[in-house]
Design a protein around this nucleic acid. Structure first.
Lengths: 149, 149
DNA sequence: TAATACTCTACCGTTCCGATAGAGTTAATC
DNA sequence: GATTAACTCTATCGGAACGGTAGAGTATTA
């Protein structure tokens, strides 16, 4: 299960990517309200994304948030790693935070590890291969499809 | 991340599947010791697997555990669902424990859900497609390969 | 009846999750 | 330069989950 926090982060980024004119700032309050995210909670999330160079903010009156990276360069995997930490199903399969399993005799021979390595690979394929831009485009494509139908 | 408990469960089942003569009972203590699992914790796990019809036990002297299902009929997915609960990355994608996301306007339009549906499908493919027998056989194949080389 | 091994329920310390609170800082406007 | 609007940062909190321990109870065999 991914955390609620990661879900909020992704939804906030999608909202930012969808902003009318690229370069427009969005208020935390507006995102929070439209996406039904507790405002103070969203503040922390956006701050975190800012510290990791995904978004930037302007302070004071007329302040707000906007994307720093292009939507096509923000992957789901990146966001999840920032918010939730390692994606791998076992610590001994994590790239960003490898940790040996204490109770495992030899890693290479571990049957459980072998199976979950396949899960990890498949998961990474999807998450590192899908960007914020992708899921917005998917929507546009669906709208087009609906118009044609 | 899968839980430590699930990892233990899988390792215990692999140990049972590997028992010398099919039908031999294994002591909790023996499995615990050989797999470095806290004994009392393993008791709970095996009991749980028993309640779900994966293993059976004999009590008293000469007691112990053995598999009820064939190794080729016990999938990783089944074990994980028993021990850890739903596998799906979002409650709204779970088959065994579907729950609507409170904060999601329309499920069908949810971009996050769409992406994670692909993760869920890929994960299920592996976990429901891999059995205890598979990972023991894999090992045998590796040994054979080593002998040939 | 003694010994052995599984069965069941309760509990416990720690960490994580989701969220809230509030004081502080920056920037625009009047 | 005071006011207001907005982000920034740190602390805290209640509840649940995780990993594990404890111990009394029950069945089976010798």
């Amino acid at each position: 299960m991914i955390s609620q926090k990661a879900k909020y982060a992704l939804r906030a980024l999608i909202a930012l990517a969808r902003a009318e004119n690229p370069g427009d700032v969005l208020l935390i309050s507006d995102i929070a309200e439209r996406q039904r995210i507790p405002k103070k909670f969203l503040e922390q999330i956006l701050l975190d994304l800012k510290h990791h160079g995904v978004v930037v903010s302007r302070r004071g009156k007329l302040g707000g948030y906007l994307l720093l990276k292009k939507p096509s360069e923000i992957t789901f995997g990146e966001v999840l790693r920032i918010i939730d930490g390692p994606i791998a199903p076992l610590p001994c399969l994590s790239r960003m935070a490898y940790r040996r399993c204490e109770d495992c005799a030899e890693e290479e021979a571990c049957e459980v590890r072998r199976v979950f390595a396949r899960v990890a690979a498949a998961t990474r394929d999807v998450l590192d291969g899908t960007t914020i831009a992708d899921c917005i485009m998917g929507e546009v494509r669906d709208e087009a499809r609906a118009l044609i139908a």
